[in-house]
Design a protein around this nucleic acid. Sequence first.
RNA 1: GUGAAAGUAGCUCAGUUGGUAAGAGCACUGGAUUGUGGAUCCAGGGGUCGCGGGUUCGAAUCCCGUCUUUCACCCCA
Length: 443
Amino acid sequence: MKIPPVKGTRDFYPPDMVRRNWIIDGWKKVSVRNGFEEYDGPIFEYLKMFQIKSGDEIVEQLFSFEDRGGRDLALRPEITPTLARMVNQQINSLPKPIKWFSVPRLFRAERPQKGRLREFFQWNIDIIGADDNVLADAEVIFTTIDYLQEVGLSSKDVKVKMSSRKLLAAVLRNIGIPEDKHDALYTLLDKKAKLPPKTFTEMLDKQVHDSKQANKIKAFMELESVPHVEKMFSRDNEVVMANDELAEVRHRLDQMGVADYCIFDPSIVRGLAYYTGVVFEVHDVVGDLRAICGGGRFDNLLHDFGGPLIPATGMGMGDCVLQILFEQKGLIDKNLPEKQLDYFVATVDKPLNIGMADGVVEKTEEDIVVQLTAKLRLAGYFATFSYKAGGLSKQLKEASDRNAGKCIIIGEEFKNNQLVVKDMATGKQELVDYDKFLSGLKS
RNA sequence: GUGAAAGUAGCUCAGUUGGUAAGAGCACUGGAUUGUGGAUCCAGGGGUCGCGGGUUCGAAUCCCGUCUUUCACCCCA
């Protein structure tokens, strides 16, 4: 019986694995050089844990099961709750700020579509308990950009679109929208970029009946820079303060030299209610893909998980959309590390009797090949030989296919204790004394 | 959960109105080449045409169901 792979999962054959590792290694390298330490948690947790942050409707979107002791468990759809739990458990002994990163394998029981699968990897970086919120937000965004730059995505390819939940809330309050309508509005405003302008206007009018108010919201959503906000709402202290904060983050990013990646975009809202300050997403400039990553400030998170009120900010980037973008830009194959075989040990495949004249010791060429390959490996080289029966011609072809640097040929010369060492790039070959070759390996 | 399109070899695909159409290229294996690689030529293996049912003398082809994939919606942590 043939069993197909499960919907929304991926098989990683060796070439796919090379790509996956390239992405993940890049995430890790950039995290470390930006001062983040790696952590991880279990791949399943209590179902309850995922409901705290995201509510009951989330249960439908995740893989859950009951263990034999009747516990309701779920495969993790995100790692932030685990982070909150782990940090809360040791909150008093951890030096602040806590700068941690992780590359968890996550699971969501959604219907797969472009850039969304049921199993994927997501890079997470978080800064918890920093005294300077503005600097922490800037550092999270900088680290994100550092990675994008590292893999060859310039500010012409991708943009970090930033806004602020605090600012948006203050603006809505200033316009006179009652607090209980904010969450529903966030959901709509978050969709602005996706909807045709006419549809957006219609939907906005449905939620905000006063056309003056609706027009003000629309005017705010159209603003292209932070100074414009100040002009429009200069008398509202809350708006001004939230706006200043966003401007300070921009100023820091400017100092860090990555301002050309960043633009103010009031239509960046983020779906969930738990963001409390700066929010951002990275989008490709062409704009036909969903967000490459999303992040922002969530100062209530640890408190919601039974810990103290302590500021936090972070970012999550999945591997699915990223990989599509890399393919569009042709970035992966260009950057993959070349697989390099140091030595391929070949034989002429003739029986070769070596040893004392009286024939007490007898070795075949194959014995020499296996012994020499093992010696090379023990000395730290990437060495191999052929399993196939075939002439030298076949073996050289195999060495060439495997991108070998050098090929060692065991043949008649071995009777004089000599190897043929062939440089595969130049095609030149030389006779080398076996013992000298071996002693040369150790230096 | 809703809607649309698609499924033929490991991959990309062709297959005429339903009538010897089970096919090509790439990949893989072997040979030309018994001591010299990337090329070329030749040959070979590999498919219940996603699966099940129906219509028909006859189905890869038409109908129904189902599974899977892709895309969009819902949602997006």
